[in-house]
Each structure stands twice: as C-alpha cells, then as structure tokens.
Design a protein around this nucleic acid. Sequence first.
DNA 1: CGAAACCTTGACAATGTTCAATCACTGTGG
DNA 2: CCACAGTGATTGAACATTGTCAAGGTTTCG
Lengths: 232, 232
Amino acid sequence: MKTTYFKAINLFSQASTESLDTLSQFTQRHFYKKNNLLLDYDQSKNTFLYVVSGWIKLFKETNDGVEVIVDVITQNHYCGESFMFDATEREPYKALSISDVEFLTMPTYIIKRLIVTDHIFALHFLRATLEKQQHNNNHREHLTMQNATERIACFILRLLDSKKLTLELPYDKTLLASHLGMRPETFSRALKNLSKQCGVHVQGGNINIDHPDNLIRYVYEHCSNIYPCNLH
Amino acid sequence: MKTTYFKAINLFSQASTESLDTLSQFTQRHFYKKNNLLLDYDQSKNTFLYVVSGWIKLFKETNDGVEVIVDVITQNHYCGESFMFDATEREPYKALSISDVEFLTMPTYIIKRLIVTDHIFALHFLRATLEKQQHNNNHREHLTMQNATERIACFILRLLDSKKLTLELPYDKTLLASHLGMRPETFSRALKNLSKQCGVHVQGGNINIDHPDNLIRYVYEHCSNIYPCNLH
DNA sequence: CGAAACCTTGACAATGTTCAATCACTGTGG
DNA sequence: CCACAGTGATTGAACATTGTCAAGGTTTCG
C-alpha cells in the first residue's frame, strides 16, 4: 500500500516517514460484504483494525452464552489497542461486518513499534485513546441515567446531521437495541413512544424528525452534557 | 517535593530526570479529611490529580439536577487526563474526599508538557490510559449484563484479598449503590439476597464470606471474564 | 444527649424482560 | 413468477426487576 494513503488518515497523518513506510509494508486492505466474520477471538489478540467505511460489531459471550456487544464502530474508528501492552488479562472479542465494509488491518506489534519509536505518532494515538475514553464514559452515564426511550432519542440526535431532518439507521434495530442496552421488544416500544412524544416518524429504518428541538429538550434534561455533545 | 518521591510512583517512575524535576517543582501534596470538596468544575479543567491513599468521588449533575457518579478512585489512580488535549467539549466534574485522603495535584499543562517532551513517560501514560479503558469497558458490560445482586457480588469479589474471608466496604453504601448504578434501597435488598444465596455475612460495612467459590460461581456465570479478572 | 446522615423495610408504581404469536421483508430455488 | 424459508420487527400478556415514597431504625459525631 502507498504511504500517501495513510497521510489522509487522521490517526496516521503526522507519523514519521519511517512509520509510514512500516505501515505501508504491514497493512492489509480488506473489502467485505455484510455479515462476515472479520476477526475471531485469536485474531483479535494481535490485530489492529481500522475502519475506512461501513460498520463493524465487536462482541463476545458471557460464560453462560449470552452475546455481549463490546462496541459498534464505523469510519475512522479502530479496535485492537488493548492488546498492545500486556496481552495477558485482556478479553478477546469477535468482529462481524454489519454492513459492507472497507477496513485496514495490521499486527498490533507494528502499532506498538510505531508508538515506541515515533513520539509524534504516540501523541496522536494517545489523543485518540483519550477521546475514546470520553466516549465510553458518556455511554456509561447514559446507560445508568437515561431510560430506554431517552437512550434512543440520544442516539438519533447524535446521528442527525445538523439541519437535516431525516436519517437512516446505520444497522438493524436488534443490534442497535443491544448496543443501547435493551431488548429488541423494548426498543420497538420505546421507539413508538418517541414517535408520539417528540414527533419522530419511523418508516422501517428511515426516520423523519419534525422538530429536532423536541428531541433535544427531551434528551438533555436527563443528561449531564450540553447539546451538541458531538460524540461519534 | 523531592524527585525520589516520584520514583516510587509507578506512573512516574520511568520519567526522565528533567521530567522528575518539573514534577517536583509543580506538584502539590495534599492531606484532606473525609467530606471535603477537592476540586470544583473550574479546577477540574486544569488539574491533574493523583491519589496516594484514600478514596475520592468524581461527580457532576444532569441538567435536571441529579447527581452522576463519574468515577470513584483510590490509591494509584488519577483523574484529569481528559483535559490534556482539546480542553473544549470535555465535561468538568467535582471531586469530593469520601475518606481521609492523601493526593498530589499538578497543572494538566505540566503533564501534557511531560508527555510531549518525554517519550518514555508518554508510553507509561498511554499504558495507564489503556488500562483505564479496559476497566471502563468492563464496568459498562457489568451495568448491562448483570443484575443488582450480581454487580454487588462482583464488586465484593474484586475487593477480596485472595485467601482472606473478610473485608470492609471502602465507603458508604449509598455511594456504592450509586457507583454500581442502583438506588440505595435496591442495594440494601440485593445485599440481603446475596447474604442468603451465597453465604455472605454483612455487619454494617464489614463483610464475611463463607466460601468465595459460591460468589465466584454466582458472578461469573453472567460475565464474559474469567476469575480473577483483577480490575481494581 | 441530640441532630444529621445513613441504612433498612414495606407498599406500590414504573420500567423492562420473557415468551409466544404474528407480520413484513428479502432472497432462493423450482 | 410464485412459493417458501429465514430473518427481523412488532404486539400482547404475564412476569421480574428496579425505582419511588414514606416511615422508622441505626450510627456517628459534635
């Protein structure tokens, strides 16, 4: 792969020439259709995965066999960083494409090598990690402070392009429900609530919003943030 | 403060001599009794706080005035890293001592300066951040996958020194309830459950455990981790 | 001792889950 | 082109869990 390719990616853009060379040497580019297993438990332990486009679900199972959504990532997000240090103790996961996707993979030891040898890259990586941390904290707050309807409203708001009144859910409702910490049935009913209470019109995966202000007022009452919280 | 002091702290131990000098110059050491406000919203934005001993609650409020526990930290943990880059957009918090505490504070810009100038320190800091991330992810999983009783059991297990059958809750039950995402009333009832189901004897804040194996079996059924998950 | 904070308990309400049935949509093969 | 299977989405009813409110007990600390 060409080094210029990485120059266009925020996370790598400021890396040294040597780093870019290393990247271009060890990176693989992938294109997958929806519903393919991209990483199994073993692979997740030494693969760094960067999403160029599309959506990927990261998941594992509890000891009694229930699926746990670790994360749902898209464009410009990545996974695999937790195995960079102390590969022991970290819990592996599986990755599944939930839309057609383009993504890059490289061995985690390469990313680690870049971090160790390229200070500037390490700084960018740290910044990205801190941003992810911030997002995690918010997600956690939402799970405890907001009820099902509010969590959905919040998700929709964050998906909404300012000034557009329409959007499409990026993946199916069952997974979205799970990501937001509720059952599909609860999701279905909560979305109906939202429709009544806030003028949100749902047609399959397409959503129309009469007045975003309704949503904003509804969500931010029980949130510690201020609109727009622009968290992915 | 002496530079040797920092040598003994894991996070700082490998920092360069210059870094240690800077630290010793800008660090303040504090001793506070229980129930003191250590940081207000403004201070949290430019203060890095490292806990030497004791417990600290980090919290803020939703827009309708409900308290949100951001984190509860102790020995060898810290807060303030999110304001290191992009001070905008980050949500400030307040810090309250919930036991007698000893802690260090330094301006975030100093930590940032160290990270930028001292590659080795940056690496250690990144590692600490990734560990924190891992812990966050687990906390999030627990909130969605485990019920009230399981969350308490899990917390107790992580507090339990291997081979000791007794422990003391580090701070009051109301706060612990909130940290674990439930109401005090629910906590009280759930703890009673645990007592019956797993042979956990509660006497105020003191807890005795007949057979840790009972607890372990109880918790790890609905968890994706393996005992011991050693997450703080 | 007495006030304040913390904890527990009960009755009840709200919220979310489970299970079963049905419907809608999509892609497949005859 | 249609029948059909498979997946995802919705709905209702019963149930489980957690939250709310009010009251009373306990502990702590000045």
